[in-house]
């Protein structure tokens, strides 16, 4: 084990696969904690305003939410395909799978955009005049909905940008079957975004 650990130390250009992955996992852990804080808020207010959360959750569009869930899970699949393809040296498959992932990511954001737009058109957004008339629990529900899905959306957006970067690296052969840690780490991040959504979807759309 000591040999495995110190093997990379004297290389001219340090390339430490395990180290990079460790750093990524630590980063993902902080991301979990970030969303953890938000879910903590959610659970506290859910127990405090049971009825009002129920009413407000019923107004969300479950169909759009479900479609988005499917889109995101599929994108996770294509992401995994892309990583395993490059490990085997199949650049073509890797590129097309990555391209699909980006497409699904954008699709998710577009659906999300229309969902938000419909809500905002109804005057349901924090600070709107209509919100003054609603019971406080519902106001909190909508605020949580916007903040958490917004934060998640932001992560998807960042993910799409990073994926685009990876796509260029992949096509310029900077990412290859010997050095694929960047793509693999991006994949880990993308799965995290996916997992957060898998919690988010039932909390807001299904639990009424």
């Amino acid at each position: 084990m000591e040999a495995e650990r110190t093997e990379h130390l004297n290389q001219e250009q340090q390339r430490d696969y395990t180290g990079s992955k460790m750093g990524m996992w630590l980063f993902l852990y902080t991301e979990f904690l970030l969303f953890g804080g938000l879910f903590l808020l959610y659970s506290v207010y859910r127990t405090r305003y049971v009825e009002q959360f129920h009413t407000a959750a019923a107004t969300l569009d479950t169909v759009l939410g479900a479609v988005n869930t499917v889109v995101l899970i599929t994108s996770s699949l294509t992401m995994a395909v892309s990583v395993s393809a490059i490990r085997k040296g199949d650049r073509k498959l890797s590129v097309s799978a990555l391209f699909l992932t980006i497409l699904f990511g954008c699709g998710f954001l577009v659906i999300k955009f229309f969902e938000w737009k419909a809500k905002i058109a109804h005057g349901l957004f924090p600070g709107a005049l209509e919100m003054f008339e609603l019971p406080q629990g519902e106001v909190i529900f909508y605020s949580l909905y916007y903040v958490i899905t917004g934060m998640h959306g932001l992560h998807v957006l960042v993910g799409v940008v990073v994926l685009l970067g990876m796509l260029t690296l992949l096509m310029r052969k900077k990412i290859n079957e010997k050095d694929f840690i960047k793509l693999e780490n991006t994949g880990l991040y993308w799965h995290l975004v996916d997992i957060v959504w898998i919690y988010l979807f039932p909390f807001f759309y299904l639990l009424t």
Binding site: T30, E31, L33, L34, F35, G36, G37, L38, L41, V44, Y45, R48, Y49, F125, P126, G127, Q136, G137, V139, I140, S143, L144, Y146, V147, M151
Partner: peptide, 29 residues
């Protein structure tokens, strides 16, 4: 630190959009 990050962000949202998580006038705690 991530917890601080999210709390600071929520405070900014609170001031910009009035999300109400920490504002007793809006049902927050």
């Amino acid at each position: 630190t991530p917890v601080l990050a999210i709390v600071m962000l929520l405070l900014i949202f609170e001031r910009m959009f009035g999300v109400g998580f920490f504002d007793p006038a809006k049902g927050g705690d």
